[in-house]
Amino acid sequence: MTTVPASWYVVLGILLFTIGALGVLVRRNLIIVFMAIELMLNAVNLVFVAFARQQQAMDGQVMVFFVMTVAAAEAAVGLAIILAVFRNRETVNADEVNLLRW
């Protein structure tokens, strides 16, 4: 593990982020879209930790701490919104929530 260059972690982070972005684009289920967003946040966290290790600086890990906090807040509010949408429209399909559609 310790013999791997930092660029490999960057490549892995790019892969995970792209998979998450693909999930946001392809899936229509709001909850799965949400999980794909969590995946993208975690890809960024991985790159932060790898660079913190490379630069011998703790600031990268502090940033991961903040990203986790924002992710927790976002998940709580987002899932509350999904619950509210489900109560009003009986669906979690992103295509059927089209009130603001042009």
Binding site: M1, A52, Q61, F65
Partner: peptide
Amino acid sequence: LAVMFFLLDARMIAALQVIVY
């Protein structure tokens, strides 16, 4: 990912990953 964080010497972050995420 938590295991990966641990192997990158981010022990506290690895623990937080398991607990929070």
